[in-house]
Design a protein around this nucleic acid. Structure first.
Lengths: 335, 335
DNA sequence: CTGTTAGCGCCTTCAG
DNA sequence: CTGAAGGCGCTAACAG
């Protein structure tokens, strides 16, 4: 039924070693016999079995990627960066959604390892001791992608979330705002949650603005939660003149809540966030936001992983990509 | 270095066959020896090698999915549906972007087949003779996911794009519109392009409205192209009172072009589209659109694929999922 | 430049 | 209920 390397060898009148060589582009084959082999392959419709090859060579040319949620535009963008580079280096990716849930993450890491991936790209929530444990038992390189980790002995690529948030809030402060609310993610989330919240507090502190707990709401990153949070702020007797949202999507929800009250953005209230997802320029007013290079984060992590898999030495295994304030239309001066 | 089934066998004082049995949950093992084996596994930190298993059993419990572009929200949603169901049935997915490019599609299909996937989910552009050819050489089931194919001898799941478009345009007609423009995708794209365009023409014809070529522009599905197309329509001496966009994203671009001219949606011009991506309710006015159940398309295709892989018999291998008009705020009556 | 020979780690009859 | 033995299809020395 299935045609193997052995069949090709017989058909071409050579040994299987020779067939293996031509299939693997080994230069040590006379052009004439190479041709013979190719013809036999063609004639028989031979297709190399990558599983057998993987068992024999101990390399699968596939990498595992655990991602929170592929249907989230931000992560999907990262994934595309990963896949493009993987493809360039002839790797395939096994994609697993884990929703930043620890149990799920550990589970998929293990099945990925069972499948003998040559490397692992981990995009998740907090990196716990259990994660470290699982990583240690892996005999393949791992790089954290868009996920924070303290210890610094794991390879990683991300932006500096705290600094990004800091820059966003400072942009507001520079416009004269002093009453600045924040729509945060859960503080359990190290990067999009805690770090961005820290950046907010830091910018406030540095500007001598006292932190006001009632000006912070925790959202779940979705549009509706941003809209809800904003409604809450609008109902305050002393409503803020500006709001910093941890993500674009919540910011857009906030903008619409403001507009639905008959108020203007940025005329009455300014809105800024972090992400620069494609949606940021697809709303009116267009969103001023701190850009985080999602595609590049994916691409760079994958590139780093290929180096690690080839045992090339890398000088810097913790890379922090730059972020950048993108000024559009949602921020104005304080009145 | 790596601990194998053989090591476990020795450690537990049984044969490798027995270890294999307990690892695979074969009931024919005495509880006592099962326990011994589990302890040995624990002690040694044994992790089954799925590649070896795959070679021996000829099953990899992984399916290939070729997708146009994972960073496109629509496809990302499908992908999530696929992965959720795959996960439920203990399959993993190898994800390949192919951008609806024939060459790329054929290439990844072949590498996926080399990797011995147990099944293939194909989401692409046109299904050419070459595709059929590649599919024929596969010894595993294949299901087309959100991609049209005439012959009807391939398993598939999708919506009826022509009918969806027809319904959208008819919704406009019911509001009294007779001058209806269309922002189409490329006609080379069978589903999102050609079929939706056909639905548009059909609805027009049925309502006795003569088709006007100058009222159709081809976009590339992106926001900007929708905005461009709309600007073109706005410059017409006889500008349309309504526009049907093949996708949400282009519709949003169109809305903004209208608003940027100081015109109102739907007051001056109505806009409708097909997709119902999450963005549809994240713009103002919220978009009236024909919903296409992306997640379900993914989930149902994967479910169908599992059945095919298990050789269960399926009564209907061509499934057409229902679409539905979602009325929001972007359509109004003709003046 | 080419062939021979061992495995890679596991599943799967077939006996017992 | 358990063990022995023969592959799965290919790579990787090692000879020649």
């Amino acid at each position: 039924m299935t045609v193997t390397i052995y069949d090709v060898a017989r058909e071409a009148g050579v040994s299987m070693a020779t067939v293996s060589r031509v299939v693997n582009n080994n230069p040590n084959v006379k052009p004439a016999t190479r041709k013979k082999v190719f013809e036999a392959i063609e004639r028989l419709g031979y297709r190399p079995n990558a599983v057998a090859r993987g068992l024999a060579s101990k390399k699968t040319t596939t990498v595992g990627v655990v991602i929170p949620d592929i249907s989230n535009a931000i992560f999907a963008e990262v994934a595309r960066g990963i896949e493009d580079i993987a493809n360039m280096y002839h790797y395939n990716i096994i994609l697993c959604n884990a929703d930043k849930k620890k149990e799920k993450e550990i589970r998929v890491i293990n099945t990925l390892l069972e499948k003998q991936v040559d490397g692992l790209l981990f995009m998740g929530g907090a990196v716990t001791e259990e994660h470290q444990q699982a990583f240690r038992t892996a005999n393949v390189p791992i790089v954290l992608c868009a996920t924070s980790e303290e210890s610094g002995n794991l390879a990683s690529v991300d932006i500096d979330h705290e600094a990004a948030a800091y820059d966003a809030v400072q942009a507001l402060i520079k416009q004269g705002h002093t009453s600045i609310a924040m729509i945060s993610g859960t503080l359990e989330d190290p990067s999009n949650g805690y770090a961005r919240f820290s950046g907010y507090k830091k910018a406030l502190a540095e500007a001598g603005i006292t932190y006001d707990e009632s000006l912070v709401r925790i959202g779940n990153y979705r549009y509706e939660s941003g809209a809800d949070a904003m409604r809450y702020f609008l109902d305050l007797e002393q409503r803020p003149t500006a709001v910093f949202s941890a993500t674009d999507e919540m910011a857009i929800g906030a903008i619409h809540s403001i507009q639905d009250r008959g108020l203007q953005v940025p005329g009455d209230i300014s809105v800024i966030s972090v992400d620069n997802s494609r949606m940021a320029s697809m709303v009116r007013p267009q969103l001023t936001t701190v850009a985080q290079p999602m595609y590049d984060i994916g691409a760079v992590s994958m590139r780093l992983l290929t180096k690690l898999m080839k045992k090339e030495n890398v000088d810097q295994a913790q890379v922090v990509l730059p972020h950048e304030l993108v000024v559009r239309q949602s921020v104005g001066g304080s009145k």
